[in-house]
Write a protein that binds this DNA or RNA. Structure first.
Length: 268
DNA sequence: CTGGTGGCC
DNA sequence: GGCCACCAG
């Protein structure tokens, strides 16, 4: 066998071997998520879906949600905000549509009309500006919750902008947002859409090496206080909502991170 | 960025 | 009922 032939075989082995190992490593990162009777395979770096207390998880291209029929809104909306998603595009805002993927029937936007409350996005339109389709997909009524305008355009908006800042700084974050749907809540519209008294947002950064998370809990009204004043532990959000976050993580890591209200690893 | 509303067709 | 033009924080 000539040296040239040996070299060719060696090269082929290295290329094929690298390809196989790469496939194996990617496979190791994947997990099975069973939701709504459907089994989907996702990458853990892309998907940290919480549990559903309502039994109705809906997947869209740009985000997933758990719909609470009694409250006529999502108990959580979850999505990854990648650095590459950030965009300055300026799309025209479409009209809200009923989410036909919600089998129990999502609320009509008319419930919000003249109610005194904003149709507050849970997955913000500003986080899905990488395409017109992704942007427009956030205008489903399964993705909104009644919010006072001063809150929505105020501190909630500031938190969303800070989230985009972190997505850029930390090369992507995974985001879960929602209202706290507990107790006797005021309702609006014929379909009695519940008006949450508190809203939460939970973030995890699993991309910059050392996993870190942070949680925010806010009352329904605007505030001039700095955002870090609203930091709480993920455990607190879990106790309030009954939702289990980040169960994909190793239990020891999950327990430690979720008990912490420390925000020193997050740059404000 | 976050949104709403009056009024015309 | 859908849509445009305009307005607010």
């Amino acid at each position: 066998m000539s040296n040239k032939t040996k070299y060719s075989i060696l090269t082929a082995v290295v290329i094929i071997g690298t390809y196989l190992i790469k496939d194996y490593l990617i496979e190791k990162e994947k997990i099975e998520v069973v939701a709504g009777g459907t089994t989907v395979k996702v990458n853990t770096n892309e998907y940290f879906l919480p549990t559903s207390t309502t039994g109705q998880i809906v997947h869209h291209e740009g985000y997933s949600l758990s719909y609470s029929e009694p409250h006529e809104q999502a108990e959580w909306v979850a999505y990854e905000l990648k650095k590459s998603h950030l965009s300055n595009a300026n799309f025209k805002r479409p009209y809200f549509e009923i989410d036909e993927a919600v089998k129990t029937g999502a609320a009509h936007w008319r419930n919000y009309k003249q109610s005194g409350y904003d149709r507050g996005h849970l997955c913000p339109a500003g986080d899905r500006k990488y395409s017109q389709a992704a942007h427009d997909e956030t205008f489903l009524t399964s993705n909104i919750s009644p919010q006072k305008h001063e809150f929505n355009a105020g501190i909630w908006n500031r938190l969303e902008q800070k989230t985009r800042y972190w997505a850029s700084k930390y090369d992507g974050v995974f985001v879960i947002s929602g209202g706290v749907l507990k107790g006797n809540l005021k309702t609006i519209g014929e379909e009695k859409v519940a008006v949450p008294n508190q809203f939460y947002k939970v973030l995890i950064d699993n991309n910059t090496g050392k996993t870190k998370m942070i949680a925010f809990l806010m009352d329904y009204q605007d505030s001039e206080l700095p955002l870090y004043k609203f930091v709480t532990s993920v455990d607190t959000i879990e106790r309030l909502t009954g939702i289990d976050f980040f169960s994909e993580l190793d239990d020891a890591i999950e327990n430690k991170l979720e008990a912490s209200s420390d925000y020193k690893n997050w740059s404000f």
